[in-house]
Amino acid sequence: MAEMDVHSVLGLNMDSGSMEDAILNNATIADSWKGVYLTVKWMQVVTTLFSILASVAFIVYAVVRRVVKSAEVRPFFYLTVSDLLLAICWLIGAVVYRKSVCSRNPACYNIQAVAQMLYISTFFYTLNYIWELGKSLKRKLDNDLHKITSTERNIGRAAIILSSVVPAVLTVPTLYFGNKMECYGNSTHPHSCLVVNAGSLVTLDPQAYTNGTCKIIHLYSTSVFLCVFFLTATSMLVYVCVALRGYYTNDKGWTAINVMKMSLLLYLAIFFFSSVAAALLTILKLFDHEEKNELYKVLYYIQAFTAMSQGFLNCLAYWFIQQRLQCLNENSSHDMGTQTPLLSSQKRQYASTQIATNCALRPDMSSF
């Protein structure tokens, strides 16, 4: 009688046979994905460690050399700090991961919420750095390296502050109402702490929530992630296209133009490389909650590698660009001391070839 009462209260009109089949079916599906989740976990551990090491190396160097306040270094410094915090958060998620969880796990819910906040923060910091990079490189092209107005400084400081404040404000409802209403959803699922949930928290099926508020929180957090991604992606594309168009119309130094193109396009490529898989998975989960499609496995592997590598790739790109700029400065100084000056067109040709031939990628940290 007690069992029948429970079933009647829950509104379940399922016989014992169908219940057993459903349980076995769910168990079979879970077992088939355990290998995927375990692989994602170790990929997450390895890639986050690389990002942490690269980010810490740059942060320590920037602090020791006291270049954090530099107009060119400061935006990238804060981007690196944000990448570091994100990598640490996802490393914690991989450590907390278990193959099976027998009880509701609010820790994973909060880890994913904080990770999403930091992930969004990296979007804003990347946009800010690309914007600052374009202005800085334009000043170098115009031979006006020291012309930074107080208005530009104030805008830069405000952008850095807002890049952290806005994601935090957007995440407050998810953390506050989610914990108050215990909107942990399917946080009992084995992969609830892994990066595969970036953008959609730990929810597989919104119907698992017991009240409308939790469904709204899930939809809110997912919408915030996608809106911020498309907003920052569109802004970066528009800015880079406008900037490159302006550089093409300027006939001062082909080598400088090549460096500008390379730096802007490189950071833009890293942004899309690190975030497209997460955005695509978030969109797919809005329409397919069961994750039975084999496409999920491919995207999980891609996301575990790309999203986790963001900090490492950003630091690598920064070092690469600084080496190119150092080579450009060395070639310019050498050309100025030449007793037989070349024609203007020959100088541009000579400088562009020197970058490719004589400027090897030397591990000279002074370029930072």
Rank of each mutant, 00 (worst) to 15 (best):
residue 108 C to T: 02
residue 85 L to Y: 12
residue 184 Y to N: 02
residue 128 N to Q: 11
residue 116 Q to G: 13
residue 182 E to W: 10
residue 167 P to F: 13
residue 79 L to N: 00
residue 173 P to D: 10
residue 125 Y to S: 08
residue 179 N to S: 15
residue 105 N to P: 04
residue 168 A to V: 09
residue 170 L to K: 14
residue 102 C to L: 15
residue 153 R to A: 06
residue 101 V to H: 05
residue 129 Y to S: 13
residue 181 M to L: 14
residue 153 R to W: 08
residue 98 R to V: 01
residue 150 S to M: 06
residue 78 Y to M: 09
residue 180 K to P: 00
residue 78 Y to I: 07
residue 73 V to M: 15
residue 168 A to T: 09
residue 129 Y to W: 07
residue 150 S to N: 15
residue 98 R to G: 03
residue 174 T to Y: 04
residue 83 D to I: 04
residue 110 N to T: 09
residue 181 M to I: 02
residue 163 S to R: 07
residue 182 E to T: 11
residue 151 T to C: 11
residue 93 G to V: 05
residue 115 A to T: 06
residue 118 L to F: 15
residue 87 A to C: 06
residue 132 E to W: 12
residue 177 F to R: 04
residue 175 L to Q: 09
residue 138 K to T: 07
residue 129 Y to N: 08
residue 182 E to H: 08
residue 154 N to W: 13
residue 89 C to D: 03
residue 177 F to Q: 03
residue 116 Q to H: 09
residue 140 K to S: 06
residue 178 G to F: 02
residue 108 C to L: 00
residue 187 S to F: 00
residue 90 W to P: 00
residue 179 N to A: 12
residue 139 R to M: 02
residue 158 A to V: 15
residue 188 T to V: 10
residue 84 L to P: 03
residue 111 I to G: 00
residue 146 H to D: 14
residue 119 Y to W: 13
residue 113 A to P: 05
residue 181 M to T: 03
residue 173 P to T: 15
residue 83 D to G: 12
residue 118 L to P: 06
residue 111 I to V: 06
residue 140 K to R: 09
residue 109 Y to M: 01
residue 115 A to N: 04
residue 185 G to E: 05
residue 97 Y to L: 01
residue 190 P to C: 04
residue 142 D to A: 11
residue 84 L to Y: 06
residue 114 V to I: 12
residue 144 D to M: 07
residue 159 A to C: 09
residue 166 V to H: 08
residue 97 Y to T: 00
residue 148 I to V: 10
residue 163 S to K: 11
residue 132 E to N: 10
residue 159 A to S: 15
residue 81 V to E: 01
residue 138 K to P: 00
residue 175 L to H: 13
residue 151 T to W: 07
residue 86 L to W: 05
residue 121 S to N: 13
residue 80 T to N: 05
residue 80 T to V: 08
residue 157 R to C: 13
residue 162 L to Q: 15
residue 129 Y to H: 08
residue 123 F to R: 05
residue 149 T to I: 02
residue 157 R to F: 15
residue 151 T to Y: 08
residue 83 D to M: 13
residue 101 V to D: 01
residue 147 K to R: 14
residue 90 W to R: 04
residue 89 C to W: 01
residue 178 G to Q: 04
residue 92 I to T: 10
residue 165 V to M: 09
residue 157 R to P: 07
residue 189 H to L: 00
residue 135 K to S: 04
residue 81 V to M: 13
residue 164 S to P: 13
residue 89 C to S: 09
residue 80 T to A: 03
residue 150 S to T: 14
residue 131 W to S: 10
residue 149 T to V: 01
residue 143 N to C: 07
residue 138 K to G: 02
residue 147 K to S: 10
residue 81 V to D: 01
residue 168 A to P: 11
residue 157 R to V: 15
residue 80 T to H: 03
residue 178 G to L: 03
residue 74 R to P: 08
residue 79 L to P: 00
residue 127 L to P: 05
residue 94 A to Y: 01
residue 173 P to V: 07
residue 106 P to R: 05
residue 134 G to D: 01
residue 87 A to I: 05
residue 119 Y to H: 11
residue 123 F to Q: 07
residue 124 F to H: 14
residue 103 S to R: 11
residue 107 A to P: 11
residue 149 T to P: 02
residue 117 M to N: 08
residue 134 G to R: 04
residue 76 F to I: 14
residue 112 Q to A: 04
residue 168 A to F: 12
residue 173 P to F: 06
residue 181 M to S: 06
residue 76 F to N: 02
residue 93 G to P: 05
residue 186 N to M: 12
residue 176 Y to A: 12
residue 148 I to Y: 03
residue 78 Y to H: 10
residue 84 L to K: 06
